[in-house]
Write a protein that binds this DNA or RNA. Structure first.
Lengths: 351, 351
DNA sequence: TATTGGTGCGGGAACGTTCCCGCACAAGAC
DNA sequence: GTCTTGTGCGGGAACGTTCCCGCACCAATA
């Protein structure tokens, strides 16, 4: 192989890439005309338009996105960062909820012409300062998230959950956490549970505080004592341990239903219940807030409460596009309802 | 709030963003000087340099990344796409392996100054034609992947696994699939297994064909019959069913060890084994090729063979940067060793 | 025939940055 | 005092695209 172009030993690119002017020259037209032809704009005769297109196709012309962006002033690039797991920047992808939220966000955004770039949680914006993002999606920020504040200070619109309500430049989509808890507890009540116990992480996210509040209210309304186990952190280890704590009551303290509002592996929770001598669903009804697909394959299959990440993502991106492209500031937020998928683990068998 | 600038009802941006010339004017310098000051280049007196920096800081100057890119000719943007799951474009994120590979790729890339954009599997390049990607990482392409071919035709460097060996413009990092299988089988053999059975998806990825080959050779070398169950597709449902098929032997056909080379939920596999009357590890040794963290929390904990997605990502990005920035074409590929994490599920208890 | 209105295309600026120059001035050598 | 060398800074082009204009031409009207 011989060095074709360039002086010295640079890794000269094989083809210098064909530009708009190259196509124009080849077709005997001006770059203006070719640009209009390819973009379907301007006043052009059909023959010229076709000629330009044909030439471009033949020469393998691909427009330079960067130049377009510069001209347009927008990069059609949005950042995606998960706030909660700042300590372990990437584990969020291992949570089925965030995995699906991430995928759905990227898919919806791409359909609307925006690309999603993955950002590590907790990193300062200095790390992505030279990225020209039109907006950033912050999934599950912590309270008074510094990432959110930094972004807003830099003038970058932020799309996140309800915790930012009221901040100018911040927009939100959230799941109806309270409604979800009520729906799940109502379902358990209907199935005859009178001693349900809640397992929930002790986190500062808006979601979890809302879960707490809804649980408290529900218990008061049904004249039941509050039974809740708070686990220090998310993750299967702590949560399963929390489940074990929740299940160690005896006699009248022995719970008859379990509502886990944290991503936990369904089969692991079932295994823990069995270890403590519970038969599911005979002695214990189980509902998990989870997107984990293994819930379908356990025996019995586990009832899950889906936070519908796809719907959240779609609403968020829709909102983002509306703000970015049409300047709509209203409404500032949307609330997405959850969905209870009732399976055998939470249905009291007929005696 | 009053309309500050702009004619008519456009959603006028609050602040028109401060440019290099603005800083220059404010500081009484030229844009060239300010640029050099901020980038640490050129010949400038310390006073001028500091003055420029201070002014930029005070005015909140943030360089326009798009203009930089245009000038530099590179966008510092790399695409990331998973080839295998073309039918269901985003589910790959729900697999722990790909979740971690994705996260690690993004993190490593960002550290090297590149941002990763998430692309749907199996989509044609038309979908991201206006994205100016410097390179694309294709995780687990299928044989003769059309995505890879399209990218190479467009002149975009591709980083992927070994299946592209020999294609110009394509570089690879791969896990040592054969070595992994041998290591796992050797371990089982050492623990006394003489009737191990392999469960593996019937896919066209290089990884799985290599697994097959290594298994065949190992069986021949140890003078054992080949016992393998091929499942039609990945996913917990099919794989667990495959496990059940594998475990339904009787008498001398009854397997004494299970090697699952597919992402499957560890607790689900254990549950399936129990349903078929196996006690793990007494009657059955279990090794799973998986990154699933639930393996740590089952009883007994499950031995896993890690494909080390973080190491793969790191090697890949390292290679990518070397090619993109220094034009190194050699070596074309790297092989990452796997890691066996031995836990109780594959250790024969002393009688 | 002179004027209007519309159509088809091209020239050139602009987006914001970097980098190659060139110019002015100062200091040292002879 | 002239010539060289070096230092500090600025002017202007370039990256590749889009879009605002203006110009030429043609048909229709007076």
């Amino acid at each position: 192989m011989t060095e074709a172009s360039g002086r010295g030993g640079q890794p000269s690119p094989p083809t210098p890439r064909v530009r708009l002017v190259d196509v124009a020259r080849e077709a005997g037209l001006s770059k203006t005309t070719v640009s209009a032809a390819l973009n379907g704009t301007g006043r052009l005769s059909p023959e010229v338009r076709e000629k330009a297109r044909e030439t471009a196709r033949r020469m393998g012309y691909r427009p330079n996105a960067t130049a377009r962006q510069l001209r347009a002033g927008r990069a059609r690039l949005i950042g995606y960062v998960v706030g909660e797991f700042a300590a372990t920047p990437w584990t969020f992808l291992e949570s089925p909820y965030f995995a699906r939220l991430t995928g759905a966000t990227a898919a919806t955004a791409l359909r609307r012409g925006y690309a999603v770039v993955l950002l590590p949680a907790g990193s300062l914006q200095s790390e992505w300062a030279d990225l020209s993002l039109d907006a950033v999606v912050v999934a599950d920020p912590v309270a008074d998230d510094p990432v959110v504040e930094g972004l807003l200070a830099a003038g970058i619109p932020v799309f996140t959950d309800r915790s930012v309500e009221g901040l100018p430049g911040a927009y939100w989509v959230d799941v109806d956490a309270g409604g979800a808890v009520r729906e799940a507890l109502d379902h358990l009540w209907q199935q005859g549970s009178r001693r349900p116990v809640l397992v929930v992480p002790d986190s500062t996210t808006r979601f979890h505080t809302e879960v707490d509040a809804a649980h408290r209210e529900w218990c008061a309304a049904h004249d039941l004592p509050e039974r809740a186990v708070r686990v220090a952190e998310a993750g299967n280890g702590p949560v399963v341990q929390g489940v074990e704590t929740a299940l160690t009551g005896e006699g009248r303290d022995r719970p008859d239903a379990l509502l886990v509002v944290a991503e936990a592996s369904p089969p692991l929770v079932l295994e823990a219940a069995r270890r403590h001598g519970y038969e599911v669903p005979d002695d214990l009804l189980v509902v998990l807030v989870s997107e984990d697909a293994t819930a379908l394959h356990t025996q019995p299959p586990v009832t899950t409460l889906s936070l519908r990440p796809e719907a959240v993502a779609e609403a968020g991106v829709e909102h983002l596009v509306a703000v970015l492209e049409h300047g709509r500031r209203e409404p500032a937020g949307t609330l997405v309802p959850t969905r209870l998928d009732v399976r055998a683990s939470s249905v009291r068998p007929r005696a």
